[in-house]
Design a protein around this nucleic acid. Structure first.
Length: 254
DNA sequence: ATGGCTTGAGTGTCAAGA
């Protein structure tokens, strides 16, 4: 089973890239973030024509998440139960017996902002909910744009980013608390090139200069660990015309 | 120089992203 995550930064703009990527890679499931569109505008016909089912939770302008899958989705849940939130950031569904949680973590803007406080509260709510979700669904993967660079290895200039949003101690602690639930960073289960990132700023030729961050992740539960045979970032779509600023991350489960 | 692009909204130019 091949599962993947991709922050597309507007599904309307990126639909051709998504359809090409589905055709080329044939994942069993693809989690999308930052749809930036209302559900009435979701390109369901195009996705179905590509051979995929779709669950989605969108909103105007911001956020929005979807799970595309070859097999139909079961037990779909939108947002974190018990955490009141206007923003559409979480979608959970069971595909082929694996619980997939697609998440677009808040950015946080800067550590002294209200948005950062919202991010920390959102992280607390996610962790509390996932603890129960893992008991109900031991075979679980958390895929998405975490907006957290877990380690200095995941940052092109760790000195410059030290203590900044995406790298701050409370954010990295939250990432470790997720691991503490019995989740594993699939990317670090395998040898990886130095300077492996999933996001590069649109400005200053950041991609060409390899100035990126690894903030998109696929965590897998204990029960999936032994079946995981690979994890990789696909930087090819970042080279296309009008790319998303994020690259897809792909995990193989035997 | 707290900028640099890209997107959506909407027709001015700004908020938000990370």
């Amino acid at each position: 089973m091949k599962i993947a995550t991709w922050n597309v930064n507007s599904l309307k703009v990126r639909l051709p890239h998504v359809l090409d990527w589905l055709a080329a890679h044939q994942p069993d499931a693809l989690c999308l973030q930052e749809l930036k569109q209302e559900d009435k505008n979701f390109p369901l016909a195009e996705i179905e024509a590509a051979g995929y089912h779709a669950s989605f939770a969108g909103q105007k302008t911001y956020n929005g998440v979807a799970i595309l899958s070859k097999a139909p989705a079961q037990d779909v849940v939108v947002n974190i139960p018990g955490f009141a939130d206007e923003q559409k950031r979480v979608l959970a569904a069971t595909i082929d017996g694996v619980r997939l949680v697609c998440a677009y973590f808040p950015n946080g803007q800067s550590v002294d902002s209200d948005k950062y406080q919202y991010k920390l509260q959102w992280l607390d709510a996610l962790i509390t909910w996932l603890e129960g979700e893992l008991k109900q669904h031991p075979r679980l993967a958390l895929l998405g744009d975490y907006n957290i660079a877990p380690d200095d290895r995941d940052v092109h200039d760790p000195k410059a980013w030290e203590g900044q949003v995406l790298c701050s101690v409370p954010e990295r602690d939250a990432f470790r608390r997720l691991l503490g639930l019995g989740l594993h960073d699939s990317f670090r289960l395998f040898p990886q090139a130095e300077g492996s990132f999933t996001w590069w700023d649109y400005r200053l030729n950041a991609f060409r200069r390899k100035l990126g961050m690894r903030i998109d992740h696929i965590l897998i539960s204990d029960a999936l660990l032994s079946s995981c045979s690979g994890c990789a970032v696909d930087i090819e779509p970042r080279k296309l015309e009008r790319p998303s600023d994020h690259a897809p991350v792909v995990v193989e489960l035997k």
